[in-house]
């Protein structure tokens, strides 16, 4: 009988959550009675326990999947995820209508990537025009994703925020170097913001504090911890989310925002979804590999606390919806 030679610390956290601390409930979209034109609004967050721990807490809202709709032809998308959308590539309006009417999408993420100067360089006015037509003919709540940090982002998102006044859209994303304009636009026109930080607990909290210092309500903020796809840093995102969520549940008000993960854009660019079967026969069917890569990334993130998942492939979305059913005890 001897004590182990290595210095093993039996260090563990046993959660004893009294239920006093909960994640903020964030409502996306305004119906006509709330000053908007959405057919319904969506609520996420609100849970007072770790993800799907029904045995020790309450989880009032299920995680929600947003369907990604690019504003221009996504020529850089992998062919196996473009496949299901071949009829609408380059026609975001029909694309959005189809996923809502035929696939049952309850939330869409309009990706204004075409406004990037190194892409189609579309003007803010063009983005606004598209947004207006989508708002008019697609009744679901909306995430509006700008072209990425920089001056263009501010111009496009501010113009879109104004055009969508009162619709309570989720604007993506505010970053530490440049958050004031987007937060101000969200405040002025009644929207929500995504606060994006690079896989770091402290930077996440710091940005949330900066945003709240602008007197922007905490229940209108969603955390983007920055998503690594499966095999490309997923475990970092996973652990940062667990740490943020544990702090939130132990009472840190600057961490109690729900999470959003941009799964689709991260997954569909990696080598494993692109490499053809002939090159790596062991990797299996490329089409199925891609769908499974998106499912695996999304399901792992759900276990870390994801509240909003932005996804691409209809089959992956269907499977993850059913997985959520099961985890919410409905399947």
């Amino acid at each position: 009988m001897l004590l182990p030679a290595t210095d093993v610390i039996y260090y563990t956290t046993i959660m004893n959550n009294s239920g006093a601390s909960a994640i903020n409930t964030v409502r996306i979209g305004n119906t006509s009675s709330e000053g908007g034109t959405r057919a319904f609004s969506i609520e996420v967050g609100g849970g007072n326990c770790l993800p799907f721990h029904h045995f020790e807490g309450t989880i009032p809202h299920r995680p929600v999947i947003a369907w990604e709709i690019p504003d221009v032809r996504p020529d850089d998308w992998c062919d196996t995820v473009k496949g299901p959308y071949l009829d609408f590539l380059g026609d975001p309006l029909r694309w959005a209508r189809c996923v809502v009417d035929e696939k049952g999408a309850r939330l869409i993420c309009l990706d204004l990537r075409g406004a990037r100067p190194d892409r189609e360089n579309r003007s803010a006015a063009q983005s606004v025009e598209l947004l207006r037509s989508i708002l008019k003919s697609v009744p679901v709540p909306l995430i509006i994703r700008g072209p990425g940090p920089g001056e263009r982002q501010n111009g496009v998102l501010t113009a879109c925020a104004e055009a969508a006044q009162g619709e309570r859209c989720l604007l993506a994303s505010a970053v530490a170097e440049e958050y004031k304009t987007i937060v101000a636009a969200a405040a002025a026109y009644g929207h929500l913001v995504v606060a994006e930080t690079p896989i770091d607990v402290n930077l996440c909290k710091q940005l949330n504090i900066l945003i709240s210092d602008l007197h922007f309500p905490a229940d209108r903020v969603v955390i983007d911890p920055l998503t690594g796809g499966l095999g490309y840093g997923l475990e970092y995102t996973y652990s940062v989310m667990e740490r943020i969520r544990l702090q939130a549940l132990s009472g840190d008000g600057m961490m109690q925002m729900p999470f959003i993960n941009f799964v689709g854009p991260e997954v569909w660019k990696v080598k494993e979804v692109k490499v053809p079967e002939q090159k790596e026969p062991q990797w299996g069917s490329r089409a199925e590999r891609g769908v499974l890569w998106e499912i695996s990334t999304a399901v792992a993130l759900l276990h870390a606390g994801a509240d909003l998942l932005v996804m691409r492939h209809p089959e992956a979305i269907a499977v993850v919806e059913r997985t959520i059913d099961g985890l919410m005890k409905k399947g």
Binding site: Y238, Q282, W283, E288, L292, W293, I295, S296, E315, T323
Partner: peptide, 30 residues
């Protein structure tokens, strides 16, 4: 896909061994 999704849950949350009953070989890599 459903089986794979369940296996992902097992790997994340505390299964020491996951038995794939009817796996497709493209499950292995992810």
């Amino acid at each position: 896909y459903e089986g794979a999704a369940a296996a992902v849950g097992g790997i994340c949350k505390y299964a020491s061994i996951v038995v794939l009953e009817t796996p497709s070989p493209w499950h292995y890599l992810p």
